[in-house]
């Protein structure tokens, strides 16, 4: 067994500067949920298969359950908690609410963060692009029709 180590990481979480000592083997999802109290990010499959733990690292979607917190030193992290601004839900959050994109809600934070990454790169995605971008996010309640409609609605709202 290897000798573990700790290090100080400085990163930004939802715009807030954070500096903390983390063990090298700490996962980003555990850092966010257990150390930062940001439990909106979900642990689903716990092995990189379901996308429920998706967060943004430097604007790109990442699976926080297979990302080491120590490797995020200097990064800009965004989670579902950072999406609402001044008490107003983000366009995607509103669209998921209005178009019934969430059922049990467990996959929703990951769905919204993966969609957020997509809309930042491609503000007018067609259905195929949305399906591709959400290919790594599983919903076990039902199909994906309402989820895709929600992303389309958010994109349409941003364009109007």
């Amino acid at each position: 067994m290897g000798q573990g180590m700790k290090r100080v990481v400085s990163l930004k979480i939802n715009g807030r500067e954070v500096e903390e000592v983390v063990p090298d083997n700490l996962l980003l999802v555990d850092f966010l949920r257990d150390r930062q109290g940001l439990t909106g990010t979900k642990t689903g499959c716990d092995g990189g298969e379901c996308g429920a733990c998706t967060v943004l690292v430097n604007g790109r979607a990442r699976l926080s359950c297979i990302t080491l917190a120590a490797s995020c030193d200097g990064s800009d992290i965004e989670t579902i908690e950072g999406q609402a601004a001044r008490g107003r839900l983000s366009a995607l959050q509103r669209a998921f609410h209005q178009h019934l994109g969430a059922q049990c809600g467990f996959c929703t934070p990951g769905m919204i963060m993966a969609s957020e990454a997509l809309l930042r790169q491609n503000p007018s995605p067609d259905e195929a692009a949305i399906r591709t971008a959400l290919g790594g996010n599983l919903c076990r309640c039902t199909g994906y029709v309402k989820i895709i409609k929600s992303v389309q609605a958010a994109a349409a709202e941003a364009r109007s």
Binding site: M1, G2, Q3, G4, M5, R7, P23, D24, N25, L27, V29, D30, D34, T43, D46, C65, L68, A70, S71
Partner: peptide, 13 residues
């Protein structure tokens, strides 16, 4: 807390 990984040292060359 997720299933713990055995401790290791992370080296970033």
């Amino acid at each position: 807390m997720s299933e713990a990984m055995a401790p290791f040292r992370l080296i970033r060359p």
